[in-house]
Design a protein around this nucleic acid. Structure first.
Lengths: 229, 229
DNA sequence: TGTAGTAACTGACAATTATCATGTTTTAAA
DNA sequence: TTTAAAACATGATAATTGTCAGTTACTACA
């Protein structure tokens, strides 16, 4: 409750920007802030959510268990994103689990506020619609990548994506540090296969490593690889 | 223009059911009916759509070209579904191509009618939101299947899905007849691999074939296979 | 500061899937 | 009805990826 939504820059990046002052005030009054430690879960597949999460800081992974017991990461969230809207809108259990990949700061907004606003503010509905439409398009792209590209291509693509979306530090290492396991669960491969590929990329000079940290050295080469050349 | 939307049962299955009588009338007045022959395209990836399609009869595939030039089928549409809403909502190019798999009958509804209604009727917005939410959930499932299951499992699942969703004729053959190529593009495999697997399933007695037609013989076995047993 | 536990890594091998080559059947058009 | 094209099918082989078994390195914590 430390800050008013009206002053929160984050909301410019999500559908909450369509809210009126009054509506924003309602959100601010009903929301609660939470700090979530790296590794902790925000919610778990199959749970009923009674609100959505607005990400103020940090990164989380949205994943789903396969029937073979393996985790598949479907999406990484960005700062400013709203999580759990799909489930709240459809009045459905979550189909995904959300786990913090770095320390996070999120606001929890009760579902009543969201659904009331959906019923009364068509601009908000439209913003949410656009957001879902965007997610859907991205999901289609992931489907195509998963089914038509090799693990090597998908990994190359993942590296480029992580650099573009989460940036790198002064030494050229990706700011977002993932475990080898997480990488495997993003590209949908066995952890051992993935580790081997990281070694290969390193040997070829495409990337550099330092412990868990990975740095992109040859972004163009990786991009070309991802595109199949 | 042969029939009034008010009398069209199909609309009960999609978001148009949230429309008022007046709104329905507007839709009916502006819509045009089209017949599309099997194999013809409704729209193509990258096109700008100036309306949505409401499927009255027939089945189409929504697909996307991969950078390697292969087609990936992302979704099959059902009777009553609305196609192209994602693109119209996001005011974006279509990210998918739609091609008729059987002869189709569709209504085309201009985007102005859709967006006007979205701005004024929150129930309609909510229905569309629910529909997109559903599509998104399904897309997540496809991602997990594509990345965690073997081709064999995905094919088994596809057969079960086709039977459940499109039914079979009096002789136990799937009503929806797909080419081997289409099957390959659904499960994301090389056509030859897929044909081999069909032969294998047939040899094991899980399915039967008669030309292009495929019949599900052992649904439970296929389901178990799909689930990884 | 030792020690248990987890994550990272490597090798050997097996399973899955793609590719190429080629033959057969079906379909559609002249 | 013939004939060319497309779809279906199968074999041989190569490439990709997974599995199992083990080693090393890092991390946390008693």
């Amino acid at each position: 409750m430390e800050s008013r939504c009206e002053n929160c820059i984050i909301r410019q990046f999500n559908s909450l920007r369509a809210l009126s002052k009054d509506e924003l005030k309602k959100v601010a009054d009903s929301k609660t802030s939470k700090k979530i430690k790296k590794g902790e879960a925000l919610f778990i597949e199959g749970q009923k959510l009674d609100g959505v999460f607005c990400v103020r800081d940090g990164v989380s992974k949205l994943s789903k268990l396969s029937s073979n017991g393996k985790e598949q990461i479907v999406k990484l969230t960005n700062k400013g994103e709203i999580m759990g809207q799909r489930s709240v809108i459809a009045e459905d259990f979550t189909n995904l689990s959300a786990t913090a990949i770095s320390d996070m700061e999120v606001c929890f907004i009760p579902k009543e506020v969201i659904s009331n606003t959906l019923n009364t503010n068509p601009y908000f509905s439209l913003e949410v619609l656009r957001h879902l439409a965007h997610d859907l398009k991205e999901a289609d792209d992931v489907i195509v990548n998963m089914s038509q590209k090799t693990v090597k291509q998908r990994l190359a693509e993942a590296f480029v994506y992580l650099k573009k979306n989460y940036g790198e530090d002064e030494n050229g290492f990706l700011l977002l540090t993932l475990s080898r396991d997480d990488y495997a669960n993003i590209v949908g491969a066995a952890t051992e296969s993935l580790i081997r590929m990281i070694s290969e990329f390193k040997k070829k000079g495409f990337i550099k490593t330092e412990g868990k940290k990975i740095g992109i050295v040859e972004e163009e080469m990786l991009q070309e690889l991802a595109d199949g050349f």
